[in-house]
């Protein structure tokens, strides 16, 4: 099965005031991954990241993540980013997974993982 063809990009970070995981989307930062803007052209993702960095009182350390399509649903390729998009796997009532929906279900069902820029940036920074 070749479900994972197109590689897309999204921009994410944690919100300064409350630490909430947010994604760059239509009209600004959105709390739900299904509302994230997906960029087929990496240059567009870079531009969104630059815009995010220009607003440092809203977001802490924004970065770009890879997103693939599992069937029709966008899913972060990295396991770490899937956990961020959903919430802890040990508390299904916590985090964004609680509200459900087809995209979140697709993320929860996804397997395979890749390294996240979020983690490598963090380690570099330390």
């Amino acid at each position: 099965m070749t479900a994972t063809v197109s590689l897309l990009k999204a921009v994410t970070g944690n919100r300064l005031a409350d630490g909430e995981v947010v994604f760059w989307g239509e009209g600004g930062w959105r709390e739900r991954f299904p509302d994230a803007s997906l960029f087929a052209d990496p240059a567009d993702a870079d531009a969104a990241l630059d815009a995010a960095k220009a607003d440092p009182t809203v977001i802490v350390d924004p970065y770009i993540i890879d997103v693939r399509l599992d069937g029709e649903f966008p899913v972060p390729t990295s396991f770490r980013e899937r956990v961020r998009a959903l919430g802890p796997t040990t508390h299904l009532d916590m985090g964004k997974q609680a509200e459900g929906g087809p995209i979140l279900e697709a993320i929860a069902a996804a397997s395979g993982a890749a390294r996240s820029a979020g983690r490598s940036n963090l380690i570099k920074k330390r």
């Binding site: 995981v21 009182t57 350390d61 961020r84």
Partner: peptide
């Protein structure tokens, strides 16, 4: 920090000194 008078790089060591880390969800 929230008012924008401090950058995250300036603020981070101060919040860490108060036990506050940024983790995956919060």
């Amino acid at each position: 920090r929230v008012a924008g008078d401090m950058t995250e790089d300036q603020f981070k060591p101060l919040r860490l000194m108060n036990g506050l880390y940024m983790q995956l969800h919060a």
